[in-house]
Write a protein that binds this DNA or RNA. Structure first.
Lengths: 349, 349
DNA sequence: TGACAAAATTGGAACGTTCCAATTATCTAA
DNA sequence: TTAGATAATTGGAACGTTCCAATTTTGTCA
């Protein structure tokens, strides 16, 4: 049952037309007569024909494979999972299908999967590069004319489009908000210092401090893995300082959650005894307790925009690199203490 | 630059051999002489040749496309993201590449993406079916001889392999554990009652109660969306009962986190004032505060096993359906109050 | 009715690979 | 040296589709 695959020739034969006609109805060409089209479509349904995109793609000079690749550096981070969902949404409704691969920050794996995707003839690639990716890694890809959109992280020197969030402005706004609430010692917690994203955010932190006439204390910047566990470690170290911070901006939401955990372990109540702001606005940020004040980057929306940009380039044929920085906004919730300000409440008593 | 694609013919020409020979070295055939192989490989590197799997696949009678499909019902749930990562790991190292699609519980979307994947000639499919999927949806897929492995959820009547976790035993163990800690009123919170998974877990709950000689109270079973928000809603309702529960087993970890949030909103301390057990053991379960006691199903491992099963069937040529239930274990952490038992601590004072 | 245009259909070549059968080069042993 | 075996190479057909140029059918109008 279902052993031999049915081809256009079979359809043509059964419908009493030529394979060319069948091909035309498959592509919904206006050249074919309504009644023939109906007949052919009926036969297609009856015989359970499935279109062979491989064969079609082979013939079509340009590689319109209807496959786009998306490779992310850490799919277990829900930020990237949501990004992938966003990409999937627009890509699916454009009739494409996505190859998704996870590199787990390994450039070797990244090289392998990109090579594999090329062999399959992807018509474009959305890439959140693994740490340490350099322009040379993307060289031959772009040379072959395949549009590439970098997301989240940029690769300096690579002639590809990019879509990153406004890390500088986001962190600046977060720090200003905390300063506005009266905090003087604000820590910057988490993240690896050898990444561009880290440095952009750190610069935003620095600039905001200077805007608000606050001193920059190097010991208040403590880096760590950009994960929940990293957040626990970072706040741990920050609390050991002789002069403790009273608030923290975190590299991302995962770190911020870890910071909250660590605070509780020290019998400190995040949002009341210590203000915490995250970055990303992952889906759990709004339901967590306390709800996390954070910089919303809307990962799903970012995925959608990246996919749209890529599709635009694919359709345009030629892809001139454009760099988009996606704006970002502060979402004030409980964890920064602004909503239910304990000091204020106490002063009212 | 890189306009015309380079083909085996170009390689053959440049290396002074025939295309057949080039093809042989591409497949690492032992038939070709060492020195020719080296020469050809050198030319391949020089010209920047990229293998065209589409063309190869077209010729190869059987569809060894080196593509496997994976479609999940909710990628934003980190359980499925991790599952996908597990699949990706084994699939990648077997030289395959994965099509990943998210259906967001829509059977229509599911039908579309599966159709699309077939057109691309996937050699196998791993499917976590959307709610409401029935055997007919998979009929033509299996008829065409493409191996399918269902994960997480089964589709009754479909002749495909499946890999599900032992929902019954897991929930039974959770309830027994709570009963062993002295709880009499144990709630079952979250999940949609029209799913098989829900009913298996509920049955485990029922059986454990009866094993432990505890009464079954229908009002202690409160269903909700299997999400964090659903968990908040469920505990909310459970706390409104005239006779409150003192502990809860939750449909999954997301619900359990929501339950913890809801408890805190009522000034109850999860793990101390109320025992909570989750299901899944997602990655955040161990770092959350309190660390979540849960039934570990190791989603990544499940993904790996599903992929291995699928690859086995692909290689075997013929796929006879096997149903695997993957065993599951209780991981005791803080949220059930076993580790730091407040009552016990108090009695020691 | 014939001439012409427009609409619809069609056969064959081509895409880049693999497979098969056939050919050529190289080795072995008497 | 040569027959026979073995190793290495090769040309052409095939996979399922699309495209092109060419052909056939249908329609229009004088």
């Amino acid at each position: 049952m279902g052993k031999e695959r049915v081809t256009v020739i079979d359809i043509a034969h059964a419908a009493g037309v030529s394979k060319s006609t069948v091909s035309l109805v498959l592509q919904a060409s206006p050249l074919v007569n309504e009644v023939t089209r109906a007949k052919v479509n009926a036969v297609i349904r009856d015989l359970g024909y499935v279109y062979n995109r491989g064969a079609a793609n082979l013939r079509q000079s340009n590689s319109k494979s209807k496959i786009i690749g998306i490779v992310v550096n850490d799919l277990t981070n829900s930020f990237f999972a949501e990004l992938a969902v966003g990409v999937d949404m627009v890509v699916q409704s454009a009739g494409y299908v996505q190859f998704l691969a996870n590199t787990a920050e390994s450039v070797d794996r990244q090289r392998e999967v990109i090579a594999s995707m090329r062999e399959h003839g992807i018509s474009g690639l959305i890439l959140s590069p693994a740490r340490g990716t350099d322009a040379a890694d993307l060289k031959s890809l772009v040379a072959s004319g395949i549009p590439v959109v970098n997301v989240v992280r940029q690769v300096s020197g690579a002639k590809v489009s990019s879509l990153v969030s406004d890390n500088h402005a986001g962190m600046r706004d977060a720090v200003r908000h905390l300063a506005g609430l009266g905090h003087h010692r604000i820590a910057f917690l988490g993240g690896f210092p050898d990444t561009a994203v880290f440095n952009e955010r750190l610069q935003g932190y620095r600039d905001a401090l200077s805007d608000m006439d606050l001193a920059m204390h190097d010991e208040l910047v403590v880096s760590s893995a950009p994960s929940r566990a990293g957040g626990v470690a970072a706040i741990e170290r920050a609390l050991m300082l002789r002069e403790r911070p009273t608030a923290a901006v975190c590299f991302n939401d995962a770190v911020a959650f870890g910071v909250c955990d660590g605070l509780r372990a020290h019998r400190l109540d995040p949002g009341e005894d210590f203000a915490v702001i995250g970055f990303d606005d992952v889906i759990e940020a709004q339901t967590a307790v306390p709800a996390l004040t954070t910089i919303s980057v809307d990962p799903q929306g970012m995925g959608r925009r990246a996919a749209q940009l890529l599709l635009k380039q694919i359709n345009a044929g030629r892809a001139d690199a454009e760099a988009i920085v996606s704006s970002v906004r502060l979402v004030v919730r409980q964890s920064c203490g602004a909503a239910i300000d304990k000091r204020e409440r106490l002063s009212l008593l």
